[in-house]
Amino acid sequence: MTSLFGKKPSGGGKSADDSRPGKSDRGDVTTSLEFTHVGDIGRSLAAAAGKIQVLEVSVEDVAAIEEAAVLYANANDSGAKEVLEEALDSASKSSDRLWRMLFDLYRLMGDRPSFEARGVVFAELFEKSPPIWDEATPVAVAPAAPKDAAPAVNLSGNLSGNARPQFEQLVRIGAKMGKLRIDLSRLRGVDEAGATLLSDTLDALRRAKVKVALLGARQAFSLLEPQLKVGEPQGRVFWLCALAMLQQLGEQAPFEDMAVNFAVTFEESPPSWDPPEILQPSPTDTGGITPKAEEGPVLKDGFVMDGVVAGGQPEVLRKLAVYGSERNAIEIDASKLKRLEFVSAGALFNQLATFQTQGKLNVIHHPNEMVAALMRVMGIDQVAQIEHKKF
C-alpha cells in the first residue's frame, strides 16, 4: 500500500528531500498497509542521530528519485533505469544519491556495459574513481511489469481515518505517475473517518487529473450502503463516499437515484454526476504481488531480509515480529534484499513503527540504493536508522 510518510525526527540527519510535501505524523489504519500510531518518532532515532549518514539531494533530483523507486518496487526495472538516466543526462552535476541508485540498478539488472560506461562519465564529472562492479545477483521478477504500469496499492481489513498523511502521499505519487491502482476488494469495514479519507483521496486524485483503476469499488459500496438511511440526516460522509463509488463504477442511474435521496435527507444539493477518468486494468494485471516473498532467516548477529519481499503480510515480516519481540535493538541486514514491493514496504513500516512505540531502536544495514530510496518514499527512514553501504 502506500512518502507513505511523516515528520522527520528532530534529532536525525536531514537531506533536501526531507521537507517535501506529504510529510506529517503517523496514524492508525487497519488496511493491508498496516500503519499504526508511532508516538514520539524521534525518541529512538535521536540517540543514534550521529551515526546516520547524510546524503545531500538537490530539489531537482527528488522527483526522479521517488519515481524511479516506485517503478523499481513495481518490477519496472527498465522504466526506473530510463528515469534515472534521463535525470543524470539533463543535469550538469546531479546528486550523489542519484548516481548511487543508477549504479546499483545496473548491478541488479546485470548490466555491466552500462555500469562501466556510466563510470567513465562519473569519473570525468567528479574527478574521482567510480564505484567498482561487484556481481550482484540480478533480481528475479515474475513477470516484468510493463513500462507504463501503474503503482499499486492494496487495502484490506477495516479502513479508519488516521492514515491521512499516508493517503496524501498516495495522491502525490499518483500525481507524479499520472496513474494509480487501488484495490478495495479485501476491505471488511469502513468507519466514518475512513469513508471521509477515501472520499477526500478520490477527490484529490480527480483534481490532480490522475487516472485511477479502483478495483473492488463494488465491495466498498456494499460496506457503505447499510449506513445510508433516507430521511435520517446522519453519516453524511458515508453517502458521499458511496456516491463516489458509483461514479467510479460508472453507474449513472443508481447515482442519480441516490443523489435525490441525499438531497431529501440532508436538505442540500448533492454532488453532480462527473465520473473521473478511469484507468482500465491491464489484462495481465495480477494485483501487483506476483513475486513470491522470500523468507528472511534469523541469525545470531541480526535479522536477514533477502531476495524479493512482496505482499501485504509476507512471512518474512512475521518472523521479524518474533525476532524483535525479545530485543531492544532490531538489527536488519538488508544487504541481500533485491527488491521490496510497494505494499510490503507499508507492512514493514508498520512493524518497525510498532517496535519504535515500544522504545526500541531499529537499524537497517546496507540496503541497495533502489530499496533505500523506496524506504524513504514510504517513510521507513523515520522509524528506522538506515545505514548505507560505502559508495
Rank of each mutant, 00 (worst) to 15 (best):
G13C: 08
S15L: 08
A16V: 10
S19V: 08
G27D: 04
D28F: 00
S32L: 14
E34T: 04
F35R: 13
T36R: 13
D40K: 15
I41Y: 09
A46L: 04
A47K: 15
I52M: 11
Q53P: 03
V54L: 05
E56G: 02
V57Q: 12
V57T: 13
E60R: 12
A63Q: 14
A64Y: 00
I65Q: 12
E67S: 11
E67P: 01
A68R: 10
A68K: 06
A69N: 12
V70L: 05
N76Y: 01
N76H: 05
A80F: 13
E85Q: 12
E86T: 10
A87T: 05
A91V: 10
K93H: 09
K93M: 08
M101E: 04
L102N: 11
Y106F: 14
M109C: 11
D111I: 03
D111F: 06
F115K: 04
E116H: 07
A117K: 15
V121L: 14
V121Y: 04
E124W: 00
L125C: 07
P131V: 06
D134E: 13
A136R: 15
P138A: 04
A140Y: 01
A144S: 07
A145M: 11
V153P: 00
L159N: 03
G161R: 05
A163F: 02
R164Y: 11
G174V: 12
K176R: 15
M177R: 02
M177N: 05
L180T: 09
R181S: 12
I182E: 09
D183F: 03
L187M: 09
D191N: 15
D200T: 10
T201A: 08
L202G: 00
R207S: 09
L215Q: 07
Q219V: 15
F221G: 02
L223C: 07
L228K: 11
K229G: 00
E232K: 08
P233H: 07
R236H: 06
F238N: 10
L240V: 04
L240R: 14
L240M: 12
Q247Y: 05
Q247H: 05
E256A: 03
D257T: 13
N261E: 11
F266Q: 08
F266I: 04
E267R: 14
E277G: 05
P281L: 05
P283Q: 06
G288H: 01
T290G: 01
P291D: 06
V298D: 09
K300P: 03
F303R: 06
Q313M: 13
Q313E: 08
P314A: 00
P314I: 04
P314E: 03
E315R: 11
L320H: 07
L320K: 10
V322Q: 02
A329R: 15
D333K: 11
S335R: 14
S335E: 10
K336Y: 00
K338R: 09
R339E: 08
R339L: 14
F342Y: 13
A345E: 10
A347T: 04
K360I: 08
K360T: 00
N362Y: 06
I364W: 01
H365L: 07
H366Y: 13
N368F: 03
M370L: 15
A373H: 07
L374C: 03
L374A: 02
V377N: 10
M378K: 15
V383I: 06
A384V: 12
Q385R: 13
K389I: 09
K390S: 08
